[in-house]
C-alpha cells in the first residue's frame, strides 16, 4: 500500500514540476490576451484651459474642458482579421470626444486600432484609421504589452498619425501599485484639422481662412508592468491655428491645458487593474514558483514512504522484492 502511494506521489511530483515551465513558457503567451470584446470609457479633464471660439477666432479661458475616450472591441471585425491573418486580433473602435464647459462639442475624432491580442503589435488589416483617414501604425497605442519592460517603446500619436519613442522614466508607487512611468514629447508639428468641429467648421473652412493647425504635447503614462494597462495618464497639450505663409502673424491658440484623468476614473482603473493583474501573476509567478516547491515536497514524501516500506520489509524478513512479488525460492539440493 505504501509502495503504491509513493508511486502516486511521484507521478504528482513530476506533474507539478513539469507544469511549472509549461504554464510560464507555453500556456501564458497563448492564454494572456486582450479580450476582443472589451468596452471601456475614460474621462479626462483640463481645468482652467484655453479654447478657441470658432465664431470670433479668438482664444478664451474656460473653467474646464472634458475629454471622453471610449474604446469598444469589435468582435465581428476581430474574427474577420483573424481569418485573414491567422492571428488572434483585437479591433478597437474608439472615439475621442472633447466637450467645452457647457458640454458642447469641441471636436470628435473616431479611430480604429487593430492589433495582435497577445503582443499588442499593430496588424495592418481591418481598416485601421484615424478620423476616417487610413493609417498604418507602428508601435503601441492606449495599452502596453503584458509584462512591460523598462525600456522605450514606440507609441502612436493620433494627431500626427505617426509613431515616436515613448521613454521609460522610472518606477513609482501609485495608489499602492508599483508602476512604470513613460513620457513622450511631440514637438510642434503641423497636423490635420479634425473633420468634425463646432459651428459646422470643416477642414476646408479652416484652409480657406488661411489657417493651419499645429500641435505639441508631452504625455505621461503610469503603467502597470504586469498587465501593461495604464492606470493614470496626463498630458500638457497645446494647439495653435497658424496663418499659412505668414509666420510673422500671431497664431491663435486653439487649445492649451493640462489634461488629467478624473480622480474617480483613476480609482476605478486602479481597482480593475489590481484584480486583473492577479490572473497574469498566477500564470507568470504564483504557479511557476509554487508548483516546483509542491513537486519537491511530494517527491520528498514519496521517497520517505518508499524508504519506510523497504525498511519494514527488511525488518520483517520479508523476502518480497520490487513489486511485492515473492522471490523465487532457491532450488533445493544446492
Amino acid at each position: 500500500m505504501r509502495r503504491r502511494a509513493s508511486l502516486v506521489l511521484l507521478a504528482l511530483a513530476v506533474f507539478c514540476t513539469a507544469l511549472s515551465p509549461l504554464l510560464r513558457w507555453y500556456a501564458f503567451p497563448r492564454l494572456a490576451e486582450v479580450p476582443a470584446g472589451r468596452y471601456q470609457a475614460v474621462v479626462l479633464e483640463a481645468k482652467d484651459a484655453t479654447l478657441v471660439d470658432y465664431a470670433t477666432l479668438q482664444p478664451r479661458r474656460v473653467s474646464k474642458v472634458t475629454m471622453i475616450e471610449t474604446l469598444k472591441g469589435n468582435t465581428e471585425q476581430a474574427a474577420r482579421v483573424r481569418a485573414e491573418t491567422g492571428r488572434d486580433a483585437v479591433v478597437w473602435d474608439t472615439l475621442t470626444y472633447v466637450a467645452g464647459p457647457d458640454g458642447a462639442m469641441v471636436s470628435r475624432i473616431p479611430e480604429r486600432y487593430v492589433f495582435d491580442a497577445h503582443t499588442q503589435q499593430p496588424l495592418h488589416a481591418g481598416g485601421e484609421s484615424v478620423d476616417g483617414t487610413p493609417v498604418r501604425r507602428d508601435g503601441i497605442e492606449y495599452k502596453w504589452p503584458f509584462l512591460v519592460r523598462k525600456h522605450d517603446y514606440r507609441y502612436f500619436d493620433m494627431q500626427t498619425r505617426t509613431s515616436a519613442p515613448i521613454h521609460y522614466r522610472g518606477t513609482r508607487t501609485f495608489h499602492g501599485l508599483e508602476v512604470y512611468c513613460f513620457e513622450q514629447t511631440i514637438p510642434w508639428t503641423k497636423v490635420p484639422v479634425p473633420r468634425t468641429l463646432p459651428l459646422g467648421v470643416t477642414p476646408d473652412t479652416v484652409r480657406q481662412l488661411g489657417l493651419e493647425r499645429w500641435y505639441t504635447t508631452t504625455r505621461m503614462f503610469w503603467v502597470d508592468p504586469v498587465t501593461g494597462a495604464p492606470v493614470n495618464g496626463e498630458e500638457d497639450h497645446r494647439e495653435e491655428l497658424r496663418w499659412t505663409g505668414h509666420p510673422e502673424k500671431q497664431p491663435i491658440t486653439a487649445f492649451a491645458g493640462h489634461v488629467a484623468m478624473r480622480p474617480d476614473y483613476v480609482d476605478s482603473t486602479v481597482a480593475l487593474v489590481s484584480s486583473q493583474r492577479q490572473l497574469v501573476l498566477l500564470l507568470t509567478t504564483y504557479l511557476p514558483w509554487g508548483l516546483p516547491v509542491l513537486g519537491a515536497a511530494l517527491l520528498a514524501l514519496a521517497l520517505v514512504l518508499e524508504i519506510r516500506a523497504r525498511n519494514r520489509r527488511a525488518h520483517s524478513g520479508d523476502l518480497s522484492h520490487d513489486g511485492g512479488k515473492t522471490a523465487r525460492p532457491a532450488p533445493e539440493g544446492r
Binding site: 472589451r38 469598444k72 472591441g73 472615439l95 466637450a99
Partner: peptide, 14 residues
C-alpha cells in the same frame, strides 16, 4: 472571444 458591447461610444461624461 466575447461579443461586441451594445453600449455606445460616449459623447458626454458619465
Amino acid at each position: 472571444r466575447g461579443h461586441t458591447s451594445p453600449r455606445p461610444l460616449l459623447t458626454s461624461p458619465p
